[in-house]
């Protein structure tokens, strides 16, 4: 088994090395001018589509009127912020958003990593490919369809309740219990996105130098030891990177999912910032109000990334910048 592993890997590695070599000689031949010129395209793209629209953020200080545009709308200062932060329900949805996303970070985030390790440890290529494909599939099912599936499984007469009644247990209305809702959100997210989330970790594991594994095997390291001492440390930068990116989205992540799955009886634990804005802001065309909450989300996201980056740089010596 192990020899097969060793034979398969080296050619790939050589190919990668030779690519790097070609790249270097290209750089010599053309110089840096062309590269800088080429980079103008992505830079221009980012400025045009990311920075210029940010000017629109001025509407958080305005009583924005779509017919007057942001040039002529009345400047009002901070009442939009006062309205958002003075709203008792806003704090409740902020709490829900944080709790749900912290749950997701704790329970969902490690699963793609474990899946990636397990998949790459499968030696039978057919089984490996097949299980990968099967795991990716749920990602392509829309949340609306997942909500339908959840209803079929968790509804009053769903699969789970049929099972319970066969066992002589009481019926449980899973979808209308506020205390169960966050769990359902985390579980459905795991079901739908774990496989897809594992792709990047699989790529990262495959790029580990196979010689490390071979050397460890020769030294008598068990499979578990190789995972702990080689695989995990090698993919740690990827893990940290993705964790940091995820923290940046902590207030935005998962709105569509909640929107598809929730109902008024679980608003108390399930209503998140995105769904609250959807109902009370955009639906009622309160643009300044919605933009203020969006601005707040971005600010918190940025603070999260900066802080987390500083922490990982300090304690793990790994960071995005």
């Amino acid at each position: 088994m192990e020899t097969q592993h060793a034979v398969r890997r080296p050619p790939r590695r050589t190919a990668a090395l030779s690519r790097t070599a070609t790249h270097r000689s290209d750089q010599k031949r053309f110089g840096n001018g062309e590269l800088l010129l080429m980079s103008l395209i992505p830079f221009g793209f980012v400025i045009l589509f990311q920075y210029v629209p940010m000017l629109g953020l001025v509407i958080v200080f305005q009583d924005f009127d779509i017919f007057q545009g942001f040039r002529e709308s009345e400047w009002v200062g901070f009442p939009n912020f006062a309205e958002v932060f003075g709203d008792r329900r806003f704090w409740a949805v902020l709490r829900n958003t944080l709790v749900i996303n912290i749950y997701k970070t704790i329970f969902f985030f490690p699963i793609p990593i474990v899946l990636a390790i397990v998949i790459t440890e499968i030696k039978n290529r057919f089984v490996q490919r097949a299980s990968q494909t099967i795991l990716y599939l749920p990602h392509f099912v829309s949340w609306i369809v997942v909500a339908g599936l959840a209803f079929t499984i968790l509804g009053s007469n769903g699969t789970l309740n049929q099972l319970r009644s066969a066992l002589g247990l009481e019926r449980v209305l899973y979808l209308t219990q506020p205390e169960l809702f966050r769990g359902i959100i985390v579980l459905t997210a795991i079901w739908k996105e774990s496989g897809w989330g594992s792709i990047i970790f699989i790529a990262s594991i495959i790029s580990i130098d196979p010689q490390l594994f071979e050397a460890a095997t020769i030294d008598g390291a068990s499979r578990l030891r190789r995972i702990i001492s080689i695989t995990i440390p090698s993919i740690a930068p990827t893990i940290v990177l993705l964790l940091l990116i995820r923290l940046g989205y902590i207030l935005i992540w998962g709105t569509e999912q909640v929107l598809a799955l929730y109902n008024p009886t679980v608003y108390e634990t399930g209503d998140v910032i995105g769904t609250y804005v959807f109902r009370t802001g955009l639906g009622a065309q309160r643009y300044s109000y919605s933009a203020t909450i969006g601005f707040f989300n971005s600010l918190v996201g940025m603070m999260m990334i900066v802080t987390a980056n500083a922490i990982t740089r300090r304690f793990m010596d790994r960071s995005i910048w």
Partner: peptide, 18 residues
Amino acid sequence: RLIEDYIEEESIKFIAGA
């Protein structure tokens, strides 16, 4: 719209005993 949505949400809660 805000008022109608709120009435609907709360009515569902009253009916379902939430």
